[in-house]
Amino acid sequence: MPEVTSFAPGFPTWAELASPDPERSKDFYCDLFGWYSYTLTSDMGEYEMFTLGGVQGPEVAGMQTLADDSLPSSWTCYFRTADMAASLDAVRRAGGLVLVDSLDVADLGQLSVCSDPEGADFALWYPYHLQGAGVVDEPAAMCWVELACRDIEGARRFYGEVFGWRSVERDYHRPVYINWKVGDWSVAGMVPMDEHWPPGYPAHWIPYFWVSDCDESAAAAAELGGRVHIPPTDIKPGRFSVITDPTDARLALLTPAVEDRAAVRARP
C-alpha cells in the first residue's frame, strides 16, 4: 500500500463526515470498509480519525459531530491550497462564499470552508503535520471526488478560477461527464443534475471509496442501515453505486475496472 506523503495544490486531500450520530456512523463505516477509528482531542473539541490497519495505520477520512441539528449530515471534500489567503480571495472573486474563514487545527494544518455559486460546500486545506489522507486509490480508501450541479458552465468557470482546473468531457454513464485536471492528472469529476434528480435537490460534492465488490458492498450498506440510491452500475471507470449512510450522508462506492488508477487519471 503506497504511502501518500504530499498533495499538489488543487488535489483532493481529505474527506470529512459531519454526523448527528457519531457512534452510529462509526459503526456503519467500520463495518462497511473495515476501518479503525480513534478520537483526537484538541482545543476545538473531539475529532474522529478513520484509519486502515489500526491506530498506527494510515488515515483515510475524518468525522466530526454535526454542530447544528438543522443542517443535514454530509461529507465534505477538502482540496489542497498552496496559499490560503489567495485561495479565499479567488473564491470571493469568482462568486463563491467563505463560510468558515481560515483557522488552525492544532498542529495539523489550516482549513477554511467555502461554497461555490450554486451552494455546493467544499473545504480548503493547508497542511502542517497532516498532509491529508495517508493513502488514496487503494481498497477502502478514497479514490475520487465528484460534484453534482445544474450550472455546468458556471462550475467550469468557478473551479477553473479558484483551482486552475482544466475541464475535459468524458463519455461515461451520462450525456456529459466532466473530468477536472491539474496538468495531466484528473483530480475530480462533475455530473449534471438533470430531470432524474428531485426538484430542489442541492448541488453537492461527494467522495468515492474503493471497494473490492461493488454489489456486495452496496448490499452490505443496505443491511447496515444505509440506502442505495443508484444500484451497482457499470461505467467505463468501473462499477459504481451511490448510497446514503444511516444518517443520510451521501457517498459513492467504486470497484475500478483498472486497478492502476494512475493510468486512468493520466488519460488525456
Score class of each variant (00 low, 15 high):
G160I: 04
W210L: 03
V136L: 03
P256Q: 13
D260P: 09
Y177S: 02
D104L: 11
T255G: 05
R227S: 15
F28E: 00
G134T: 02
D234H: 12
I206L: 14
E153K: 09
A249V: 04
R166P: 08
P72F: 07
V136S: 04
S70R: 11
A257W: 10
P246R: 02
C143Q: 02
A218S: 12
I178A: 10
T247N: 11
V242G: 02
D104F: 08
V162N: 07
P268Q: 09
G96F: 03
V242S: 06
E3R: 15
A94Y: 04
S73I: 00
I152T: 13
V60P: 01
A219R: 13
S212D: 15
G164R: 08
L124Y: 08
Q64S: 12
R157Y: 09
K236C: 05
E48S: 10
C143S: 09
V264Y: 14
D171W: 08
R174F: 11
G109T: 07
A218K: 11
A85V: 12
Y177Q: 04
D248C: 01
D234E: 14
Y128L: 12
E23D: 12
P192G: 03
G225Q: 04
D43K: 15
R227E: 11
C143T: 11
D121Q: 15
P72S: 11
P127I: 10
V91H: 06
L254F: 06
D69Y: 05
G238F: 07
L124F: 09
D107N: 15
S19Q: 01
S25A: 15
P175I: 07
S212A: 14
L111N: 11
R227I: 06
G53R: 04
F50V: 01
D213E: 07
F158N: 00
L254A: 06
L108P: 01
E48L: 15
R239H: 08
M193S: 03
D121W: 11
G34M: 03
T247K: 03
G10Y: 09
P237A: 12
M190I: 07
V191D: 08
R261W: 12
C143R: 04
H173I: 10
V60L: 02
A266H: 13
P246H: 02
P20V: 02
S217E: 03
Q131L: 05
W35S: 00
D151Q: 05
A141L: 01
G62V: 02
P139I: 09
G109M: 06
D21S: 08
P22I: 01
V100H: 13
I235M: 14
W14C: 01
T39M: 03
V60S: 01
V55F: 09
M190F: 10
E259V: 15
A221L: 06
A133V: 01
R265N: 09
D184H: 15
A220I: 05
